[in-house]
């Protein structure tokens, strides 16, 4: 009777050990994939948001149409579809960084904006380089960058906007 009970106990302990090992493994991998999934989801959300912002910038003149840094409601940088307007670029440079984040609805993120030529060289508007925000550091892990091709006069240029948390 005693020996049979002992055998049952070993059986039970063995199965519990195996069960706990499997459960630990599953929880471990579940946590890894959950955190990866959440990070990817956040990245996707930010990408969608940046694409929508870039759509506004390159396809719309903004609200009001002749906006400036004081009366701007929606930022748009073009006179018509994908044709940049120098005055709007200048006005955009004068809008403060925090106000721009609010207008873009990305308050919880930092961003960096610039316009470069197809070789990556900076473009100037009214004598100043067209860039806004702080260049992201290499430590920023989840930087999302959207590049749009637009016309600046007759030149084809690249509008870049990056954001990160």
């Amino acid at each position: 009777m005693y020996r049979k009970g002992q055998l049952f106990s070993l059986d039970f302990i063995g199965s519990v050990v195996v069960f706990v090992l499997i459960l630990t493994g599953i929880i471990f991998f579940w946590n890894i994939y959950t955190s990866r999934f959440n990070a990817q989801l956040e990245r996707e959300t930010l990408t969608f948001q940046l694409v929508k912002i870039s759509d506004l910038l390159v396809e719309n003149p903004g609200i009001p149409t002749q906006w400036n840094e004081t009366n701007v409601e929606v930022i748009g940088l073009v006179s018509s579809d994908r044709k940049l307007q120098v005055d709007k670029l200048s006005s955009f440079m004068n809008v403060t960084y925090d106000k721009t984040k609010t207008l873009f609805n990305i308050d919880q993120y930092d961003f960096y904006f610039r316009i470069v030529d197809v070789n990556g060289a900076f473009i100037k508007a009214n004598g100043q380089f067209i860039e806004k925000g702080a260049f992201p550091g290499t430590a920023e892990e989840s930087i999302v960058t959207i590049r749009r091709i637009v016309l600046y006069g007759t030149h084809k240029v690249v509008l870049e906007i990056s954001a990160w948390k």
Partner: peptide, 21 residues
């Protein structure tokens, strides 16, 4: 899905610029 979205915008941009020039 975001890489598809970027490819979509890339195509639109390139052919819009080609059209306007």
């Amino acid at each position: 899905p975001s890489s598809k979205l970027q490819a979509h915008r890339l195509g639109q941009d390139i052919f819009a610029v080609l059209d306007y020039t």
